[in-house]
Design a protein around this nucleic acid. Sequence first.
DNA 1: CGTTGGTTTGAGGAAACTCAAAACCGGTGG
DNA 2: CCACCGGTTTTGAGTTTCCTCAAACCAACG
Lengths: 237, 237
Amino acid sequence: MKNATAKRLGHGAALNREDLARLDRFLHPVRRVPAGTDLIQRGETVSCVRLMISGLSARYKLLPDGRRSIMALLLPGDFCDLHVGVLGHMDHSVMTLAESEVVETSQSDIDGMMGAFPNIARGMRWIDMVDQSITREWLVSMGRRRADRQMAHFFCEIYHRMDMIDEVGSNSFALPMTQEELADTLGITPVHALRVLQSLRQSGMVQFQDGRISIPKLDSLETFAEFEGDYLHLGRS
Amino acid sequence: MKNATAKRLGHGAALNREDLARLDRFLHPVRRVPAGTDLIQRGETVSCVRLMISGLSARYKLLPDGRRSIMALLLPGDFCDLHVGVLGHMDHSVMTLAESEVVETSQSDIDGMMGAFPNIARGMRWIDMVDQSITREWLVSMGRRRADRQMAHFFCEIYHRMDMIDEVGSNSFALPMTQEELADTLGITPVHALRVLQSLRQSGMVQFQDGRISIPKLDSLETFAEFEGDYLHLGRS
DNA sequence: CGTTGGTTTGAGGAAACTCAAAACCGGTGG
DNA sequence: CCACCGGTTTTGAGTTTCCTCAAACCAACG
């Protein structure tokens, strides 16, 4: 049973036995973090690199008037701050949306591992690139898709990202976030988020309750959302 | 007179004489590309790394119905596809919005230079990180700012990015893009873009005509946009 | 002088927002 | 056991922002 990080890296590069062994040593110690706590805060100077092991976190910013924007969801295997060392300070914050486990390590540790294990290095760069690609796709969604399509598209994406790390079972998976947090990631208001959610429910494409989401017919949802998954770079290509 | 690339890199790392010399050798040959041509197309497998020397380009995607979303503006000193080698294929396209000059080189060339010149490597990573940071800020703008603030914010950003490479003179600079392209980067319709533009004009904060923009009172515009420039990482910090 | 790409104007409609309040629900303490 | 609490979800009604459609305008160009 491989861990989420190995699974994730494995999508970007083939890992051999030594790679996996090195990775296992790397993934300690694990720090357990309760829901709703900031892993990193805006303005902070970054001293270490953090890796999500389990749970769910989000990159976010607060506007002067208190509204929030969630710019990324961090799933197991995602890095909070790979490479931000070259920037002086954080320009955004990262908080846990649910109880999570993270590994904290130093930039030099990462660099060392990347230098000695090219497969791992390649995998990490792949994760990084895919995360950038996802951010760009969110921009497309935000700018050019109406809220219903956007939400559907979002769910499709999370489905695939969860599937990548074997977190999907019988077409459903845990997505422990509130409607308000969902609204903040889609750039809409909570009330509107609910209404869109209701319409998706009614059409039978999505169930989203109690931090768990169920997508009975993924292809219907993908068609509705005009979802083109190439940006997740999962293909055999 | 340093070139834009050197200026840009210089913001992320201190470059010495050898670095600058290496960079100069690197910046040849330059390919001249007319406006409106794709530098890279979605689906393509990436074979080389491209660097913007002059002009203006944009990352974009087309939706099934033909609408367009512009996810990033590439200014002189930006890389089109640094590191995308690890991904099989491009998930978006890049086109010139104005006549541009680019340098095309190989991934191995870049890697070689980054290995031998740590300052340059650091500078390139810095550029990369800032570009990611910008993408995230666009997400905030798209999701949580109304079109007028969003456009103002956008102009403030470009002002600073242009200033970074000394392209701003007497509060104005060239921004050779159409209203339609502007609309596609803000995620609004061209008509609405015009109306917002008119209101900004009337308030005397922005002039935007014939591919040139003038911002008489930058601080007024920044106040209006609630612009917080830390995400550009220009500070002395 | 007609064509073309970009800008501008007008009017009606739809998507998403604001404000306000009610319902719900798992805990917690009397 | 029940009243109360905060956080979350839900509903309703009126408003604003932005979109759609359609047409006029204009300068550049062959």
